[in-house]
C-alpha cells in the first residue's frame, strides 16, 4: 500500500493482528469520549498512540485491558477482540484478561513492599509458581527482562519505593511482564522520568517488542518516532490516522495530523 520504512520491513512480514477494535465508543456519563475507533494492533510491534491532551488516547488504552471497569460512570460499546475473543463478552473475566494484557502506568507505582514481593505479587495471585524456587526463578527472569536485575539483585528485600524514579518504572515493567502477558500497555511510561531514565526505558521497550505486542501512549512525538513502528493519531475522541510511524511523521494524509506533528495544534 505504502512504502514501509526500512527498519520495519522484516517485522511487518511476520506480524499478525493481535488486537482488533471495531467501532469502539466510550462514554463517561454524558460525555462521549471515544468515537467510532477501529484499529488493528499487530503482534511484536510497538504501536504508539499520540495526540493532544484529552484526545482519548489513554481512555482507549485502558479499554484494552478493561481498566475502565473500575470507573462507575464509564460505558464502552463496540468490539475489542484479542486473538479473536471479544474481551467485553460476558464470559470474559477481567481478572484473567488483565493477566494476559499487562499495563504500566504514567507514574511509577510500586507497592509499598519489597522489590521481590512487588514482582512476585502477580505470579502469586495467578498461581504461576508451584514453589519458592520457581517463584524465585520467575522473579529473576522478570527483573532481567525489565533490565533492572543487575541494579537490584543484591537488595531484593529492600522496599520498592526506595528506588529512583527510573528504577521504579523499570521495576513496574518487570512486575507487569512477570505474569507473562501477551500484550503490554504503557500509559505515558516516561512522563515522570528524567531524560537518562527515559532513554533506559525506551531501550527496554524496544527489547520487549520481541515477545509482546506493545502499545504505548505518549505525549512526546520524538518518543513515538523513536520507539514505535506504528502510530495512531487521536484527536477529540476520533482516531484520525493510523499508519506506519515513518509515514505519519513524514507524510501524513490528514491535515489535522500534519498540524499536530508540526506543532500547530495540541
Amino acid at each position: 500500500m505504502y512504502d514501509a520504512p526500512h527498519y520495519t520491513t522484516q517485522e511487518t512480514a511476520v506480524t499478525d493482528v493481535k488486537i482488533k477494535a471495531k467501532d469502539v465508543q466510550v462514554y463517561y456519563g454524558e460525555n462521549h469520549a471515544i468515537k467510532d475507533v477501529s484499529v488493528e494492533i499487530e503482534n511484536n510491534t510497538v504501536t504508539a498512540f499520540i495526540g493532544p491532551s484529552g484526545c482519548g488516547k489513554s481512555t482507549f488504552l485502558r479499554c484494552i485491558n478493561r481498566m475502565n471497569d473500575t470507573i462507575d460512570i464509564c460505558r464502552v460499546e463496540g468490539d475489542i477482540l484479542i486473538d479473536g475473543d471479544d474481551i467485553y463478552d460476558k464470559r470474559v473475566d477481567p481478572v484473567q484478561l488483565r493477566a494476559k494484557v499487562g499495563m504500566v502506568f504514567q507514574k511509577p507505582n510500586p507497592f509499598p513492599k519489597s522489590i521481590y514481593d512487588n514482582v512476585a505479587y502477580g505470579p502469586k495471585i495467578h498461581g504461576m509458581a508451584r514453589n519458592k524456587a520457581e517463584l524465585d526463578d520467575i522473579v529473576e527472569r522478570a527483573l532481567r527482562r525489565g533490565a533492572i536485575w543487575d541494579e537490584v539483585k543484591d537488595r531484593l528485600q529492600a522496599p520498592g519505593t526506595g528506588l529512583s524514579g527510573g528504577q521504579q518504572q523499570r521495576l513496574c515493567i518487570a512486575r507487569a511482564v512477570a505474569t507473562e502477558p501477551e500484550v503490554l500497555l504503557m500509559d505515558e511510561p516516561c512522563s515522570a522520568l528524567d531524560p537518562i531514565a527515559t532513554a533506559q526505558v525506551e531501550e527496554l521497550i524496544d527489547e520487549l517488542r520481541q515477545n509482546y505486542a506493545v502499545v504505548i501512549v505518549t505525549h512526546s512525538m520524538q518518543q513515538a518516532a523513536r520507539v514505535s513502528q506504528k502510530t495512531a493519531f487521536f484527536h477529540l475522541g476520533y482516531l484520525v490516522e493510523y499508519d506506519d510511524t515513518s509515514k505519519i511523521f513524514t507524510n501524513p494524509e490528514d491535515s489535522r495530523t500534519e498540524s499536530y506533528i508540526t506543532g500547530r495544534i495540541g
Binding site: 484479542i82 471479544d86 474481551i87 463478552d89 493477566a99 494476559k100 504461576m128 505474569t179 507473562e180
Partner: peptide, 8 residues
C-alpha cells in the same frame, strides 16, 4: 500457565 487459555 493458566492465563494462556482462551479468554472466554
Amino acid at each position: 500457565a493458566p492465563v494462556k487459555g482462551r479468554l472466554t
